Computed example of a mutant assay.
Amino acid sequence: MHTKQVIQAGKQTGEASKALIMIHGRGGSADDILGLATYLPVKDFALFAPQATNNTWYPYSFLAPPKENEPWLSGALAVIKEVVADVQASGITTDNIYFLGFSQGACLTLEFVARNATKYGGVAAFTGGLIGDTIYEQNYAGDFGGTPIFIGTSDPDPHVPVERVHASAEILTRKHAQVTKKVYKNMGHTINQDEISTVNELIFKES
């Protein structure tokens, strides 16, 4: 199971008024995803990057029945919940907590915020969708209250069908998120400069 191993960077929590929680992808690491921060205007943020056991949050595709990815999926969601609680305990309010994830980390990020919807600072999901063989909307609670959420993806993508991205965006919108979705033809499984520019403009604009 996952244990809470978190790399911290950026401002100390006592000094920062905003926090960014960064979730790495399958085969990636906390160090990898932290490297993205150099492209974002987050110098005044406290940065938190949890590390998955064996560099993967759950063993199978995010499109597998959730029970096949247990207990890893629930454990991964619990780690993020603990990180959020730690950030809140440091005095940073929920509307100043931001999330970013890539690939498996983007799927996990979207699943976490949908299950715990409230007014966050913003969410950037680079190539991801809500988790499951179908979307289990009964698991999702709360209201985003206008939280800006960005989802970018390639069409096609080898891991994330564009249909799941569209369906995920619809559900998040119904929960009153301000969703911006961008689909790039044949981009490949990566993050491009337009995505970075878009999240900087839409999500990190006030920093």
Rank of each mutant, 00 (worst) to 15 (best):
L108R: 02
L130T: 09
L130Q: 10
G122F: 05
I131S: 04
V84P: 00
D95A: 04
Y98I: 11
G129R: 01
T134E: 15
V83A: 10
L110R: 02
G121C: 07
A124T: 05
I92N: 01
D95T: 02
Q104I: 11
G101L: 10
A106D: 06
A125M: 13
F102W: 06
V87Q: 06
D95R: 02
G122C: 10
A114N: 08
G129S: 15
T118Y: 01
Y98P: 04
Y120G: 09
D86E: 15
Q104W: 05
A114C: 08
L108C: 07
A85N: 14
N116Y: 00
Q104G: 14
Y120D: 08
D95W: 04
I135T: 12
T109I: 11
T109M: 06
R115K: 13
V123M: 06
N96K: 15
F126N: 08
I97N: 02
I135A: 09
A117N: 00
L110A: 13
G105Q: 08
G121H: 12
V123D: 01
N116P: 01
S90G: 11
L130W: 04
N96G: 03
V87I: 14
I92W: 03
F112P: 00
G132S: 13
A117C: 05
A85Y: 03
G128Y: 05
G132M: 10
A89H: 10
C107F: 07
G105E: 06
T94L: 10
T93V: 14
S103W: 00
A114E: 07
G105N: 11
I135K: 07
G121F: 09
T134C: 09
D86S: 14
S103P: 00
V83Y: 06
A114I: 07
V113R: 00
Y98D: 09
G129V: 12
Q104H: 12
V123S: 03
G128W: 01
V84F: 00
F126M: 14
E111L: 05
N116K: 01
I97E: 02
G122E: 05
C107L: 13
F126H: 10
R115L: 04
V87D: 06
A125L: 12
G105C: 12
L108I: 11
L108H: 03
V84Q: 02
Q104S: 12
I97K: 02
D95S: 10
G129K: 00
D86I: 11
T94C: 03
D95Q: 12
T109W: 05
I135N: 03
D86A: 15
D133S: 14
T93D: 13
F112K: 03
G121Y: 06
V123F: 03
G101M: 09
L130D: 07
Q88S: 14
S103C: 12
A125C: 12
K119V: 08
A89Y: 03
L130F: 08
T127P: 00
V83Q: 08
L108G: 04
Y120P: 03
N96A: 13
Y98N: 10
G105R: 01
A124P: 00
A114H: 05
T134V: 15
F99V: 11
D95P: 04
